[in-house]
């Protein structure tokens, strides 16, 4: 059995919306190079608050690239409110599953979307509940995972 589903491999081999948006309305970056994955998400938002474009740059493994790619597809054309509801589980399901030890990649993808929205809110001076924008500290997670 292959490590990844056909869907994951397709998004890895042919990543959708890979690249930068020079005049992005929001840019979010999550992850840590030390831990081996960083995702950067760019969004364009129109006057109605709809995400009209989204692109990504990712440093990471096959599933990090595939989850980034899938996340961009899932939020393009969606109102911000809906994009914020994107869960890592939805990304996993859209990719026909991920190996257990790769689930954290989908969490990063979800967080990258939220980080981009937060940046958009900050730039526009839109008020938000900071509770909604808490991100995983990967390095912190590492130090808690002590080997037996």
């Amino acid at each position: 059995m292959a490590l990844y589903s056909e869907k994951v491999m397709d998004h890895f081999r042919n990543p959708r919306n890979m690249g930068k948006i020079d005049d992005a309305d929001g840019i979010g970056e999550v992850g840590n190079a030390k831990c081996g994955d960083i995702m950067r998400m760019y969004i364009k938002v129109d006057d109605e608050g709809v995400i009209t474009d989204c692109k990504f740059n990712t440093f990471g493994c096959g599933s990090a690239i595939a989850t980034s790619s899938m996340a961009t597809e899932l939020i393009i054309g969606k109102p911000i409110d809906e994009a914020l509801k994107l869960s890592n589980q939805a990304v996993v399901e859209a990719l026909d599953g991920l190996p257990v030890h790769k689930i954290h990649c989908s969490v990063l993808a979800e967080e990258a979307v939220r980080a981009a929205v937060k940046d958009y809110y900050d730039r526009r001076g839109i008020a938000y509940d900071p509770e909604q924008f808490q991100f995983t500290d990967e390095e912190e997670e590492h130090t808690h995972q002590t080997e037996d």
Binding site: P15, M18, A33, I38, M39, N57
Partner: peptide, 14 residues
Amino acid sequence: NMSPVWDELQKGER
């Protein structure tokens, strides 16, 4: 080309 880390290295930000 896909990597934000490489992007930062190229720009001298890292």
